Structures are given as C-alpha cells and as structure tokens.
Computed example of a mutant assay.
Amino acid sequence: MSRRTPNANALFSEQWLTLREPADHLARDAQLTHAADSWLTRHADPSRPLEARRTIVDLGCGSGSNLRYLAPRLHGAQHWRLVDHDEELLASARLRCQYLVSADAQPIHLESVNLSLADTLEETLQGAYLVTASALFDLLTADDIGALADACQRSGCAVLFALSIDGLIRFHDASGSALYGDDDRFMLAALQAHQHRDKGDGPAMGSEAPRRLRESFRHRGYHIREAASPWQLGPESLPLAEALMAGWREALHQQLPQQRDRVDQWHARRLDDLLRERVTLTVGHRDLLATPSDRTRSGARA
C-alpha cells in the first residue's frame, strides 16, 4: 500500500519516494490542509489523553512524506498511525519523523502498523479523527475505494487525500503553450489505459480515482472540498521528470508491445526536450478533503 513508483510492476522504492517528495509538497493545496487543521481543532475530544485527541491514520505511508508535510502544519499534539505493507519503509518513516513537532511545537507520537488495505480497516481506523493518504488511489479498485469510504463513515472521521492523478499530462513550450501532437495524444492515451490495468484485484482506478473518491464520500453524507495539485516540472525537477518518463516508457512497452520503436522515438524526443529545457511538464493531480456531517459523526460515535 506504499505510494507508487513510475512503473506499477516495480517494487516500491524509497529512492523514488524521496525523489518525488519536493514536487509533492510544492503541489499540495495549502487551503485544504488549513481546513483539515481547523476541523481537527473543532472536533478534538478533550476527554481523551492529550496525544490521542488528534489521532491521524496515514494509509500507504511509505517513508513518511505525507507525515512530514502535514504534522508541522497541524496544531496540537498528534498521534499518527502509519500504515504500510512494507516494513522497511515503515522503519524509515519512524526514523525520519521521530523528531517532528506540530505547528505549535506540540509532540508527535508515532505508531506503525504493517498492514495492507486488504486487511481489516475497522481496526486500522479505530479512534481516528482524520484519515489521510497521498498518491495512493490510482492503484486501487472501485470496490477498494467503496470499502474505505464505508469504514470512514462508520468511524466518523474526516479524510484528506492528496495527489491523486487526474489524467492531465502536458508538455509546454517556453511561451507556456501546450504541445499536444499526434504522438503525444497516442502515447498519453495508451499510458492512461495502462494505469487502468488489473493490478491483481480488478481494474485499477487510474485517473478516475479523484471522481470515484468524490462520489463515494458525497454519497455517504460527507461535505466535499477539492483542489488541483499539479506537478509543474521544469529545469529544477529534471531528475524527477527523467525518472517519471523512464517509468512511462516501460509502461508503454507493456501496453504497446508491437510499437516499441514508436514509443522509444517519442520518449527520446520528449526527454531531450526536457533535458535541453525546451519544454516543461505538467502532471495533473487532485486533493480532496471530505468531512462528515454532524449526523454522520454522532451515529458513528454512538
């Protein structure tokens, strides 16, 4: 349940997670984080122990990038439950995040849970006020997202899900005009089809994840706020862009095995454009904040 590498069949790499972290943090919508902080402050239970008044579950936490972004921007003592199927990444997250403090210098308590999303959600979300994840949901199925929304509704928690891919990929020239020739259209349509391939439990959501998340939580009585959070990759982000395009090339080889030469020519041309700083690259994402109605919370906490 770690956040994905460019190649959906590769092992989840701490090197990839580290490479993408600056772009992730820069892209995220600050207003949704502020709104989540306000919601937590209003709903923290003063009868609970100090460190448990803001219990936050981070699904697919990887090496802790989501925690490193959010914890210093949220107020009050926080108890973070880090959930991932990769024990090595969990150990890295604990090590790299152990000295974090909140926005008002309150302590951050860490708990790690070695589970996948296929494991029991009820136990994972027990006591949670906020469930968060980053760059996770394109890998999941519609049933996975429905099951998660059900579990969140039963617990009465809010959710803050960042950086779900939305299918927008564009190269731009120096004037900012989008470059979208026949090869770009062909390759990016094939890449989107690859993102929807079955990862083991049914077709993955791919770029449909933001819509499915929005509809699933709205259907369960949540108030929805969304924001765009695109990567804008320019000269300062060339290592990330190069790694991303290498992953796309491999995915396209899988999707278009009879057109490897065309894939390689497109990849080489666009990569050269990036390396020579003739183009920049935009990769679209969406952030979602969903907060339960008072009726949903009272039913869940009863």
Rank of each mutant, 00 (worst) to 15 (best):
A190S: 09
L40R: 00
R42N: 10
A190H: 11
A241Y: 00
M245H: 10
M205A: 15
E123I: 02
A251V: 00
F217L: 08
H34P: 11
L140M: 11
Y180R: 11
A268Q: 15
A251C: 07
L19S: 08
S47C: 09
S293K: 01
E208G: 09
E236S: 14
H253W: 12
L89H: 14
L275R: 15
L115N: 12
L82A: 05
S175R: 15
A91Y: 08
D287N: 07
V263Y: 04
P235N: 09
N114W: 04
N66K: 06
R73T: 06
L281Y: 02
E250M: 10
H25T: 11
G284L: 01
D198V: 02
D24C: 02
L256I: 06
C61E: 01
R68P: 06
L19V: 08
S2D: 13
A23I: 02
R297P: 01
H194F: 06
T18H: 13
V263P: 02
T296N: 07
S47R: 13
F171Q: 01
D201M: 13
R270T: 04
T132C: 14
Q232C: 04
E51W: 09
G146I: 02
P203N: 09
L26R: 15
R225E: 11
S164Q: 13
A23W: 00
A105C: 12
L89E: 09
R197Q: 13
L271M: 15
H219L: 12
L148A: 09
A151M: 07
Q15N: 13
R262Q: 14
A52I: 01
L82K: 08
A8Y: 07
R28Y: 01
D201R: 15
K199M: 07
S216I: 03
E277H: 14
A149M: 08
R295M: 13
S63H: 14
L271T: 11
S92P: 04
G146V: 04
F161D: 06
R73N: 09
R212N: 08
A93C: 10
R170S: 10
R81A: 07
E250I: 09
E87D: 14
P22I: 00
R276S: 13
E236L: 10
